[in-house]
Design a binder for these strands. Structure first.
Lengths: 223, 223, 223, 223
DNA sequence: AATGAATGAGCCTTCATTCAT
DNA sequence: GATGAATGAAGGCTCATTCAT
């Protein structure tokens, strides 16, 4: 059976349609993230959302099935971005500590780019039904796996002290989301690079084993 | 003008009325926190809320003026608890590091006791109007002041390295809220005391200056 | 525990409230029957219905729970009228044939008085969910029981030939509803009394045993 | 102007097209009757209907102009079936009584074959606009004409007593529809032939003049 | 002070209908 | 002729808020 992409290659009409479909989805997803971030899930009506995305209400339903599903799609969109961006970011090196720092930076970058949507994970997850919540929990765990793997490697290699890997991973993710959650506060004091750099330094000082501290001076802020 | 308390002292009927008023406010506040935590602000109707609090709808309006105000009151109630509990908790010692640890523990305890309401700060703050949001921001800053003061003292005294006090304070508060935000995750792995202990250890290792590390072995987990 | 009626006897306020409640229900039921008869269940909006009944939409929901339930209530209201009116109507005599005629007339009278609602049983029963449909089926069977009992008595006593009681009962009820279903047609040709009289005559001629025909000349139209 | 049939005779392509057109109309009509019978006119969407008929939505509009028109077409389809089937059925005999019985049986057969659509006349006629309703009323009258003619002949010839022909015709039609309206009830007790036979017997006993009763023993159930 | 019946604006969703391809 | 993506008006229902008692 021919895939849509195959058809597209041969059939310009198919390609145009697929492109329009993709465009619409993106419009809707972005509009939803933007509006829900500022007014909350319940503060946004589907009509407002459709208007913001420049499509009709009916089409929003055709594409996403319902308001809940749209929220879920927005959240999954961010989690997918994590899955797409974090692994490549840590491939440049084998050094576990560099990997941790790179992963954390990648998480922060994705959050910065999806700042509107990122907060929804924390704010609106209760809005979803149990199945939606389960799906997200699972994706969150999957998503944080690269970080946990790097942390475990660091502990094994002796670069890190014997920390609670799950707890540290959770803290790193929480701190990464902190950039979006308290963005109204930080944007007046700190650039994105400062935020990432200082948080990286703090965390590494907390977990690096004494004998490796010197080695990562530039990451721990020269202390 | 005589305060209610003054009247109460002289008039038993006044005292009884004041007590009933207090009781009803508390019922409403607790019911609101309980219901809103599990169903979200928008998932709870005023009629459900009044029923949960065993009060009539009309009375809820008389006491709190409206649904938004009730949400605000619930959130302020937690922030008040911080203001009431944290300062006493750090008075027992002059050691800046002990003070930091004590303050963090106190924050965590308040959050644990108000777990339902604590998450509302993160989840529903967008629901409030701008004035409500401003009020909360201000209270949050006030509330974290003891922690910042202790951190500044620690930096001055040389116990801590020259960290970004605001950032560390923010991280500590975020981590304290993490207990409520991800409670569904932690409750299967970690006791409250473990959570507080391990997080304290991590943070202190990040900020203690090298020459004081030995001194706080029992707080940093013996590393 | 005091029943509402008991309270009403002692408490004028209770009585007034109960009366108003009853009035509202009646307004809603009548408005629903009237509107649904002319435009069909789906042709009437709850807002139109509430307006017709001079109450707010919200109140219609408080009283009946939903549009379906309101339809069900309208239908049950007619069936209740059958149950209330038919048994007394046949008590005046022990003659099975007179009882049948009296029962049929009573059915027709109730249908004439609830002409709007009576057609809904036939028209909108598919609209109801399975439970609603079951409930109605049961009530319909209960409702036609007096007629079937009289028919069985007639067969036993030899007044009637050995007819299929269920089928004749069904026909009588169908014909009674016919007055409402085709009212637009009959009202130009036939008075209500003519309709009832002629249909009674037809049916009795069909079921009376030969030896009793003479006896009921005035019912069978003197043939 | 050449009729489609004429074209078809000369042009195979035309013939094929006409056949396909006919097939599609039939698919749509049947799908509509099937779906509307179980879910009601308003319970079926045009998209569901098109899907059931394996046709695109747009095509359904091209063929029938709109949802109301489709309903009208379904109903007219049944009424056409009456017009097509009843006259031939009564041609076999000149006996007015046999003709009445044959006509009634033919009505019942058509209803049995179009059970889905037959109920729509009763259930959804209010859905149609006034013009649609008028058209149907007229067709109904036309449709019952053979029956009325036979009844009049029976009265004239003395086979029947001097009954109200319109009323008896109405009753017969109502009873014929009863097979579809209460099919859920009868199908458990009675076969189609039993239904027709017993109803015929009942009606004939009601209208046959005394001196002809013996003659139609086999139709009146041997009484 | 306390109640809860009553209101009605607003929201999610469906679906008849159109029209570009 | 044929398709199905797109539209948007309309409807069922909820719930914050009010007010007569």
């Amino acid at each position: 059976m021919a895939s849509p992409a195959d058809n597209a290659a041969r059939n310009p009409a198919e390609a145009a349609r697929a492109a329009r479909t993709e465009l619409r989805s993106r419009q809707l997803l972005d509009a939803a993230a933007r509006l829900m971030e500022s007014d909350g899930f319940h503060g946004v009506s589907m009509q407002a959302l459709a208007a913001e995305a420049s499509v009709s209400v009916g089409l929003a339903y055709r594409y996403f099935g319902g308001k809940d599903d749209l929220l879920l799609a927005v959240i999954v969109d961010v989690l997918d971005a994590f899955a797409a961006r974090v692994p490549p970011a840590i491939e440049g090196t084998d050094d576990p500590v560099q990997r941790i720092a790179a992963a954390f930076r990648a998480y922060c970058e994705v959050i910065d780019e999806h700042r509107h949507a990122a907060v929804l994970t924390y704010r609106e997850s209760r809005t979803l039904g149990p199945e939606g919540r389960e799906k997200i929990k699972k994706l969150e765990v999957d998503t944080s796996e690269p970080l946990r793997t790097a942390l475990r490697a660091g502990v094994s290699s002796g670069h890190l002290t014997d920390v609670d890997v799950d707890l540290v991973a959770h803290d790193l993710l929480l701190i990464a989301h902190g950039w979006a959650l308290k963005h109204w506060y930080f944007e007046q004091h700190l650039s994105f690079d400062d935020y990432v750099g200082r948080q990286t330094a703090l965390v590494l000082r907390a977990v690096l084993s004494p004998e490796h501290r010197e080695q990562y001076r530039e990451l721990t802020g020269g202390v």
